[in-house]
Deep mutational scan, measured.
Amino acid sequence: MAAAAAAGAGPEMVRGQVFDVGPRYTNLSYIGEGAYGMVCSAYDNVNKVRVAIKKISPFEHQTYCQRTLREIKILLRFRHENIIGINDIIRAPTIEQMKDVYIVQDLMETDLYKLLKTQHLSNDHICYFLYQILRGLKYIHSANVLHRDLKPSNLLLNTTCDLKICDFGLARVADPDHDHTGFLTEYVATRWYRAPEIMLNSKGYTKSIDIWSVGCILAEMLSNRPIFPGKHYLDQLNHILGILGSPSQEDLNCIINLKARNYLLSLPHKNKVPWNRLFPNADSKALDLLDKMLTFNPHKRIEVEQALAHPYLEQYYDPSDEPIAEAPFKFDMELDDLPKEKLKELIFEETARFQPGYRS
């Protein structure tokens, strides 16, 4: 834990890192770190609560700039109880001085990944967590956004079992017609939660990839272990087919990539493993919904509104309290091709509203 900075004593240090967030945020305490930044909790002297502050230093890398800009653009436009918001952003007053960006968010005690390492969940908890994931996802999908990296560590939890989806750095506007060349190379989302079509096709992607990830998360809540822990690309596919069985001819016809289709045709026939054999203690309604989410063919996979209306979630289902976005989200430009200098300018502009004396 960093010592509390005395008023006016300059930035606090946390594990050798400068955290320049005073005077409003003090009493910093280390939480963890990701690929390009550290997260601390801090005391907000204005709202009198502890908050989470993520320090991001992305400006050396085009990919990190892209992810940072995506996350900020999306989260500043989203407003939903099951999606983490941005409360404040701290950065230098000029673009030349801006080396880091500090993002202030609600402090959540833990995440689903940490929880599943230590606790076996009751059916009631599984049901409530799944409902909140789908409630947040309904809003995301209504904005025409794909999260693309749903996994237990991106689901934040607090002691009252509130759940918030975080990390929109890989999110995209849904565009089933656009052929994202190089899709697989830039697709760094965790393999275990990846839909089979991501490994088999490169053309376009749809909201059904997020539903697949939610199915993987439900299976993990039922058993405290990942359902498809593939060691590499082909191993991942083999794990999936080992449980779902061989795809039907109709399902194979959806695979545009001939090499991928021929690979699947070359494999020995596998039978589907019954879900109640894998999860003998699970609620039968939970397994019915799991089956509809972990469907090989993305066109037959359940959609988020149908999933919310499934009998497993009937005690929570309330369409009048499951809000959607006001308007579909649009990125003005494809960020993939922009140089990091341009992305830095866009991050600077996007964060201006939090600067003292800002006038829109």
Rank of each mutant, 00 (worst) to 15 (best):
A3W: 06
A5K: 10
A7V: 12
G10M: 08
P11A: 04
E12H: 09
F19C: 03
V21Q: 05
V21L: 01
P23L: 09
P23D: 14
Y30R: 04
Y30P: 12
Y30A: 12
I31Y: 14
E33G: 11
E33R: 10
G34E: 01
A35P: 02
Y36H: 09
G37D: 03
M38H: 06
C40A: 15
A42C: 12
Y43F: 03
Y43K: 14
N47V: 08
V49L: 04
V49D: 11
R50L: 09
R50P: 10
V51H: 13
A52Q: 05
I53S: 06
P58W: 15
H61N: 05
Q62V: 07
R67N: 15
L69T: 10
L69A: 11
E71I: 07
K73L: 01
L75Q: 01
L76W: 15
R79N: 14
H80S: 13
E81D: 00
N87K: 00
I89A: 11
A92D: 04
P93K: 12
T94S: 00
I95M: 11
K99I: 13
K99N: 00
D100K: 13
V101D: 05
Y102L: 09
V104F: 02
V104L: 06
L107F: 09
D111V: 01
L116D: 10
L116Y: 08
H120Q: 02
C127W: 10
Y128T: 11
Y131T: 15
Y131F: 01
Q132F: 08
G136Y: 07
I140E: 04
H141Y: 08
N144H: 10
L146R: 05
N154M: 02
L155K: 08
L156R: 03
T159D: 08
T160V: 09
D162E: 00
F168A: 09
V173A: 03
A174K: 11
D175V: 01
T181V: 10
T181R: 07
V188S: 03
R191Y: 05
R194K: 00
A195Q: 03
E197W: 03
L200D: 02
K207L: 04
I209H: 02
I209D: 03
I209C: 01
G215E: 00
G215A: 01
L218T: 05
L218V: 09
E220F: 05
L222T: 11
F228Q: 08
H232P: 02
Q236L: 01
I240D: 05
I240C: 09
L241V: 10
I243C: 14
G245Q: 01
L252H: 10
N253C: 10
C254K: 11
I256E: 08
N257F: 02
L258H: 11
R261K: 08
Y263A: 11
L267V: 11
P268Y: 09
P268T: 02
P268E: 08
H269G: 09
K270Y: 13
N271C: 09
P274G: 13
P274R: 10
P274V: 13
A282R: 06
A282I: 15
S284A: 09
S284Q: 05
L289P: 15
L290F: 07
D291C: 09
D291T: 11
L294S: 03
T295K: 09
E303G: 04
V304I: 08
A307Q: 06
A309Q: 14
H310D: 13
Y312N: 00
E314R: 15
Y317Q: 15
Y317W: 15
E322T: 15
E322H: 15
A327M: 11
F329M: 10
K330W: 15
F331H: 08
D337W: 15
K344F: 09
E345C: 15
F348G: 08
F348C: 10
E349I: 15
E350N: 14
E350P: 15
P356T: 07
G357P: 14
Y358F: 01
R359Q: 12
